[in-house]
Simulated assay, not measured.
Amino acid sequence: MSQTVDRALSILPLLAEGPADLGQVADRLGVHKSTALRLLRTLHEHGLVYRQSDQRYRLGARLFALAQEAVENLDVREIAHPHLVRLNEQCGHTVHLAVHEEGEVLYIDKVESRYPVRMYSRIGKPVAITVAAVAKLLLADLPETERHTLADKLDYPMYTSRSTPNAPAFLRELEKVRDQGWATDLGGHEESINCVAAPIRGTDGRVVAAMSVSAPNVVVTADELLTLLPLVRRTAAAISGEYSGKTPTKETSS
């Protein structure tokens, strides 16, 4: 990276701390005021910084617009898919990715198990919201008032004897999931299917998606599946890092 670009980019985190005058910017960069002014003018021309009436500089509106546009155009499925495939290759079981949209939790990606017994879940299909591990993670991240409002509106079908029976029980489960940072569905939707899940978080720490590993009892027991939880959480953390921009992707030289 050229020295000029490096210096210009160094101004942005400085102004993120609050408005600064020309002297403060020059001192932080370790350059003459004329150099700092030239850099600030260039950033100002592009809308990345703004000069206030008191002659101090702050971050410009264009920078916020670019950040918002970047977030809106992030495709968590595209980012997550290679990680889901690698996880599937490591454990062999079905891997799902889900998001919360308009009151439903939907599967947006799936990597099939390598075992003969397959799950009937499909991309685009809503999950059983009161029992699914991915749903618990996504709903547990909602503000408390939203969690209570949603819990009161839901039906609680007893798919199995382990299904969530009512709103109070559901809210207790969400609180538990919120505290521990992961979730399970151990026979809550189907007696023979178990699932462990972990959250994918954005730059602000909020849960933007959830991923899970599911397997039938005939392949692995619930206890055996739970041993995969550290691997599932590491995978979710890797996706989170890439999605939020905290973990740069490796570039290959041609």
Rank of each mutant, 00 (worst) to 15 (best):
I123K: 15
N194A: 13
V25P: 01
A36G: 06
N73K: 13
R114E: 08
S244K: 02
T221I: 08
A236P: 02
V95D: 00
R147G: 04
Q68G: 11
R86A: 12
L150A: 05
A70W: 13
D185C: 08
S121M: 10
K136N: 08
V5G: 11
T4S: 13
M211A: 03
V196D: 02
V95N: 00
V31G: 04
A67N: 12
A65V: 12
H44K: 15
I123E: 14
E144Y: 05
A8C: 09
R122D: 11
I79T: 14
R201Q: 11
D6A: 15
G202Y: 02
G241C: 08
T160W: 04
V117G: 05
T227D: 12
L37Y: 04
L225C: 07
G245S: 09
A135W: 00
A238Y: 07
L228H: 04
A222L: 04
Y107T: 08
A36M: 05
L226N: 10
T145W: 10
R206N: 12
E146K: 11
A135I: 02
L74Y: 05
D6Q: 15
D21P: 00
N217T: 14
P230C: 10
L37I: 07
T252I: 12
D109G: 06
L139D: 02
E175W: 02
K33R: 15
A65I: 11
C195F: 03
E144C: 08
E112A: 15
T130L: 04
R77D: 04
L106Q: 06
E104D: 13
S254P: 15
R233K: 14
Q3I: 11
H32F: 08
S253L: 13
R172W: 04
I200N: 01
E102P: 05
H44C: 08
V99L: 12
Y159L: 06
S34W: 08
D109H: 06
E69D: 15
A222N: 07
